[in-house]
Simulated scan of single mutants.
Amino acid sequence: MFTRADLEAREAALLSPFARRSSEARRAVPEAPSETRTAYQKDRDRVLHTKAFRRLEAKTQVFLNAPALGDHYRTRLTHTLEVQQVARSVALSLGLNETLAETVALAHDLGHPPFGHAGERLLDSLMRGHGETFDHNSQARRIVTLLEERSGEQPGLNLTLDTLDGLNKHGRAALPPTQRQPSLEAQVVDAADALAYTAHDLDDGLRSGLLHPEDLLELPLWRELQERSGVTSQRPSSADLRTLQRELLGWLIGDLTRSSDAAIAASGVASPDAVQAHAHRLVTYSPALRGHLRGAGDFLRERLYRHWQVEREVYQAEQVLTELFGAFLTRPALLPPRPRSRVGRDGLPRAICDHLAGMTDRYALATHAALRG
């Protein structure tokens, strides 16, 4: 049987010098270590067992999570698991702490509200009307430090400071000079997130029929992918599309791993602190692939995320959240007991925002329908 000490010794022997080690992890509130799990394993398990994590199953990635739309589109949960898989694979190849990368990946989208980025923009707009803001990164930290509880003694999950730092830095590609860079493990999660949503949103767009294979021919990424895979048909079959998806993931992961390894070696960093003091992020793609991914991102924004059928869902989401926010603000007694109990501490708008952000798509739609009678 491997003990925690055995696992920490294996980390010391196998991990790169610039990887974070669980034996050095600290928590805001000290606690007794586990006999069999490292500190990052405990973090991962705490995230997995939260209600916020389970609710990701019924939150939008691109398409509204509703039975009428089918079961095979990605949700926020399946996206999270895909990010976890990529992050863990890349971290292992680079000699990083794969459990820390896995934990940050699993927690990185906990703060997403219903209806995807449309819901995030709408809640931010509503909160700005009350002198506050909303974004899913800050909300993820709020969930793990305050809203989720693992005991009655203190709020939050008491995660390690390394995991919390990874959540703080997630999504902030350009940091002010006075701020430290994320750990390499957190940088891997950011890159894995961009990789996953690019590859898989293209797949969902094709599956939905809102994108067509011939549309993708304008993308250098897609044209090179066809050359690499040998699938050059302008009307690829379902089997061809699966081949293209598999080849795309392998290409992106391989490029990210090799380019990051070269950047880390060229930087001369020899410790986690040196990574965080470095002027630039070190987990990166090759220049050519970075250009391809920017082009794919622009294409997805214009041709998928702003497609009229997606915009119709966005409009519905905005109406639902706006009316729910207004109803709870006008009549706080409509709030369930738990969010209502936080009004005195956090103020009514923030308590409402936390409640709405925690909803799944289906629960938000059902609550809205019930209040409208």
Rank of each mutant, 00 (worst) to 15 (best):
R141G: 08
T163W: 07
E149I: 13
D135L: 08
N137L: 11
L164Y: 00
R142A: 03
E153I: 12
D165T: 11
D162Q: 12
L159H: 04
R142G: 08
L157W: 00
L147V: 01
L147M: 07
S151Y: 06
A140R: 00
E153M: 13
T160N: 01
N158K: 00
E148T: 06
D162T: 01
I143Q: 09
L157A: 11
L164H: 00
Q139V: 10
V144I: 02
L147N: 02
H136A: 00
R142E: 06
R142M: 07
G156L: 01
T145E: 12
R150Y: 15
N137P: 09
S151F: 14
H136E: 01
P155I: 13
N158G: 15
N158R: 05
T163N: 11
S138F: 09
F134K: 06
G152N: 13
Q139E: 11
T160Y: 02
G156T: 07
T160M: 03
L159S: 01
R150N: 05
T163I: 06
T145S: 08
A140G: 15
F134L: 07
T145I: 04
P155V: 09
N137Q: 06
G156P: 12
L159K: 01
T160E: 14
N158Q: 06
E149A: 12
E153W: 11
D165S: 09
H136Y: 05
N158S: 12
L164D: 01
G152K: 09
N137D: 10
H136I: 03
S151Q: 14
S138Y: 15
A140K: 08
T145P: 04
S138Q: 05
R141I: 10
T163H: 09
P155E: 03
F134S: 01
L146V: 04
V144S: 01
F134A: 07
E148I: 05
G156C: 04
D135P: 04
R150E: 10
S138N: 10
